[in-house]
Nucleic acid binder design. Sequence first.
DNA 1: TCCCCCTGTAATATTTAAGCTTACACCTCT
DNA 2: AGAGGTGTAAGCTTAAATATTACAGGGGGA
Lengths: 147, 147
Amino acid sequence: MHISAKCSVAVHCLIFIAEYGESNKVTSELLSRSTGINPVTIRNVLSALKKDGIISIKPGTGGAALACPLEGVSLYRICQAIEPAFLSKLFGVHPAPSHLCPIGQNIHQVLDVSYQKVTDEFSNSLRSITLADMIAEYHSAAWRQSV
Amino acid sequence: MHISAKCSVAVHCLIFIAEYGESNKVTSELLSRSTGINPVTIRNVLSALKKDGIISIKPGTGGAALACPLEGVSLYRICQAIEPAFLSKLFGVHPAPSHLCPIGQNIHQVLDVSYQKVTDEFSNSLRSITLADMIAEYHSAAWRQSV
DNA sequence: TCCCCCTGTAATATTTAAGCTTACACCTCT
DNA sequence: AGAGGTGTAAGCTTAAATATTACAGGGGGA
């Protein structure tokens, strides 16, 4: 499995909004051009972020703004907002092992225990990275690029 | 994304081989019935495990056996054997951000830093779980089931 | 020795999920 | 009232995963 590219797009949009949201009206059309992703998908992403309270969108006239301190927005929260079931999709499991075989009867149980441990640690990793960190990294990347 | 169900199938097969491999000839056909996965996919999985030295397969006549102590086979090693690039597929990234936009120019760099940190920790989690652990869990699940 | 059972692997089809496109109702400010 | 946004549904396209079919080749028992 892999975690949908929409999460990367969401991060892109959030950095964009953080950088330009105050001075410009950030619309889905604009973000579409910056990300290379079509505007409907952008709207779906923004809509999910809005439902989670990460951003607000001005009704009618349009334009997105952060609704939350940067430190409060972790990668975990972003992934969760975009794709609520992302953790349970991390590991694929074969759906129909034989119920006649002792191993087939118990394999899901066995995998659940191991995968649960891994996904717990994974979600902690995601929680430890915030939008504030990523924006700091963006500034340092942009600076390195400029010299 | 998500990690292919073939890894779960590989674990299933390995437990099967560990439990029954000494007393029976474990063929792809048998594993196919136990897992509910078609025999060609099973053969591809076993073939990958063999290339990694986790199991051996008797040429000609068939039958798989472990070729490695249980503690030496981590989830990480299994995933790696089945799907060498699994870590780099963990997070999807939008492929064509605008090179005209400062954020588009740097977003891949920014995401790489964060995602690298998370995937490193993720792979450590996978390394910490071995086939020995999972077989122990299988025995306790099978025992709970039987009482 | 010959035949049967098994593996290895290629080619093709099927299925499923992700993302794209089009379309349109609705909101708000001018 | 109209211009410019958002919200969201329906159907299409594409890409990835898995299944199916097919067949060459190895080894051991009859």
